[in-house]
């Protein structure tokens, strides 16, 4: 119950609080990872990181009308098609996933 009063503070504050808190930290991280897509973890590999970067980028391009217009003018496609293709690319932006090392 004691650590309840630290609940309001950020994750980093709780790191040195002993085993129980470390366990808690993990669950908090897991919570963050499930809530915010793309939050990294100790085992994030380069590929996963890249995929997240790309997905974030595409989402940002779509959201900023000026940027998506810029792409559309350069490619000579209509904005709707560029947007459609960006969402399509978000499915697998960096090619096939790399198999994880079995360790």
């Amino acid at each position: 119950m004691d650590n309840q009063k630290f609940c309001f503070s950020s994750v980093t504050l709780r790191i040195d609080f002993g085993f129980q808190d470390r366990f808690n930290l993990n669950s908090q991280l897991e919570h963050l990872q499930s809530k915010y897509v793309g939050t990294g973890h100790a085992d994030t590999n380069k590929f996963e990181w890249m995929v997240n970067q790309h997905r974030d980028s595409y989402a940002s391009y779509i959201g900023h009308h000026a940027l998506i217009s810029y792409f559309a003018v350069a490619q000579n496609e209509c904005i709707a098609r560029v947007k459609f293709e960006f969402v399509e690319k978000m499915l697998q932006p960096c090619g096939l996933p790399v198999p994880r090392d079995e360790q």
Binding site: R55, D56, H64
Partner: peptide, 10 residues
């Protein structure tokens, strides 16, 4: 805030 992937608004 911001045009993010998982923040509604689109």
């Amino acid at each position: 805030s911001g045009c993010r992937r998982i923040v509604p608004g689109q």
